[in-house]
């Protein structure tokens, strides 16, 4: 899922300062699962904003909504009937959702209520970790199912570097060395011959470096 963290309330209060009628829009997708932008978070954030603003002598009116997904046009369309009654939309969906709202409602200022994180997994309640950078050219079948681009701090294709110590990455003891993980797994799978092959230079053009990406599947259109 796409993960995120709430923005500090001070930052949000500063963003909404010019407005006294806003929509707080959540999303039932990824951000609900990682508990940063779902229905409950919409309620808590709205309540918090009302309390803070009224305490400061500047009451704010908030419409609380949570869309099925902010990354699909049909759900965004559901806001059309009321969005123009408000001065701004504070979205706590991921950056993709917020931008899609902005594209559809061109005269409404869009404010981000969360900092979008990464493509990750729930390692345990309250703890998420990155697993994929969406680089556009998956090699997991060669690396024991562990991604060198994401799990190695240097995205090395021939790791580990000299900074790998007792399974930890040089960036910190809390970060496992991605290449130690890969090697352990390749050994368990009896695929160490994958390790010793020289890998071609990665084409980063399928990643963000090629510019904003688009997927067109003619068969689906």
């Amino acid at each position: 899922m796409i993960t995120g963290t709430p923005k500090p309330i001070e930052e949000i209060l500063e963003m909404v300062d010019p407005y006294d009628r806003i929509v707080v829009a959540g999303c039932y997708g990824c951000v609900t699962v990682c508990r940063v932008g779902g229905e409950k978070e919409v309620q808590v954030l709205s309540s918090t904003l009302r309390l803070a603003r009224e305490t400061a002598g500047k009451k704010i009116t908030i419409k609380e909504v949570c869309l099925e997904r902010q990354c699909d046009p049909e759900y965004i369309e559901q806001m059309r009937s009321y969005v123009h009654d408000y001065q701004a939309v504070l979205s706590i969906a991921c950056g993709a959702g917020i931008q899609f709202l902005a594209e559809k409602y061109t005269t409404t200022p869009l404010l981000p209520g969360i900092n979008t994180g990464f493509l990750g997994v729930t390692e345990r309640q309250g703890e998420w970790a990155e697993r994929c950078q969406g680089c556009g050219d998956c090699v997991l079948h060669l690396t024991g199912g562990i991604c060198p681009v994401t799990r190695c701090a240097k995205s090395l294709f021939h790791g580990p570097c000299g900074g790998s110590v007792q399974g930890h990455c040089e960036v910190g003891k809390d970060t496992p060395c991605g290449w130690q993980l890969i090697i352990d797994r390749l050994k368990a799978l009896d695929q160490m011959d994958n390790y010793t092959k020289l890998k071609p230079y990665k084409g980063w053009n399928t990643s963000r470096d090629g510019g904003p990406r688009r997927i067109v599947r003619e068969d689906m259109i």
């Binding site: 409950k40 309620q43 808590v44 309540s47 918090t48 009302r50 309390l51």
Partner: peptide, 12 residues
């Protein structure tokens, strides 16, 4: 008890 219920008490 949801967090929002607790905050609502203060709003009220």
């Amino acid at each position: 008890i949801e967090e929002t219920l607790l905050l609502e008490a203060f709003e009220n």
